[in-house]
Amino acid sequence: MFYVYVNKRKQRVLITRERIADPSWRLAGVHRSADSAKRHARFIADARDYVLEWDILASASASSTPRGGGSRRRQEG
């Protein structure tokens, strides 16, 4: 799950996989995919002119397998 939080005092939007207990961060949405969390967070950040930050997107994108089965090598023999 991907969580989108908003901090009005710091004027920031955060995308994370962790639940945040800090009361200054308000939960704005929960998403199953990183793409939908990004769209939601960007919408909020653009509408309010807030900074968008994340701690999961680089690792989530890097771990996805490219189309076509990844990096398999053909064995010749």
Results as ranks from 00 to 15, higher is better:
Leu14Arg: 13
Gln11Ser: 14
Glu18Asn: 10
Asn7Ala: 06
Ala37Leu: 07
Ala47Arg: 15
Glu53Lys: 13
Arg74Asp: 08
Arg39His: 11
Met1Ile: 04
Ala60Tyr: 02
Leu14Gly: 02
Leu57Val: 04
Val13Ala: 11
Leu27Ala: 08
Leu52Cys: 04
His31Asp: 05
Val30Gln: 14
Tyr50His: 11
Gly77Cys: 01
Asp35Asn: 13
Lys8His: 15
Leu52Val: 06
Gly29Val: 03
Arg74Asn: 06
Trp25Ala: 06
Arg17Ser: 12
Gly77Ala: 12
Gly70Gln: 02
Asp22Phe: 00
Arg26Val: 12
Asp46Ala: 13
Gly68Ser: 06
Gly70Val: 06
Phe2Gln: 05
Ile56Ala: 12
Arg19Trp: 03
Leu27Asn: 02
Ile56Asp: 00
Gly77Met: 11
Val4Arg: 00
Gln75Arg: 13
Arg32Leu: 09
Lys10Ile: 06
Ile15Ser: 01
Arg12Gly: 02
Ala34Glu: 05
Phe2His: 15
Gly69Glu: 01
Ala34Leu: 07
Arg19Cys: 01
Tyr3Gly: 00
Asp22Leu: 05
Ile15Gly: 01
Glu53Met: 15
Pro23Gln: 11
Ala45Tyr: 02
Asp35Val: 09
Gly68Asp: 07
Lys10Ala: 14
Ala47Trp: 05
Ser63Trp: 04
Tyr3Gln: 05
Arg67Ile: 03
Ala47Lys: 14
Ala47Leu: 15
Gln11Leu: 10
Val30Gly: 03
Thr16Val: 01
Ser33Ile: 10
Thr16Ile: 08
Ser63Cys: 07
His31Tyr: 13
Ser64Thr: 11
Trp54Ala: 10
Val51Phe: 12
Ile15Trp: 00
Gln75Asp: 08
Gln11Cys: 14
Ala47Ile: 06
Arg42Cys: 09
Ala62Tyr: 06
Phe43Asn: 07
Arg9Pro: 00
Asp55Glu: 00
Ile20Val: 15
His40Val: 04
Arg67His: 09
Ala37Val: 11
Thr65Pro: 00
Arg48Gln: 11
Trp54Asp: 15
Arg42Phe: 02
Glu53Tyr: 03
Arg48Asn: 13
Phe43Met: 08
His31Leu: 03
His31Gln: 05
Arg19Pro: 01
Asn7Trp: 03
Gly69Cys: 04
Tyr50Val: 10
Leu27Met: 12
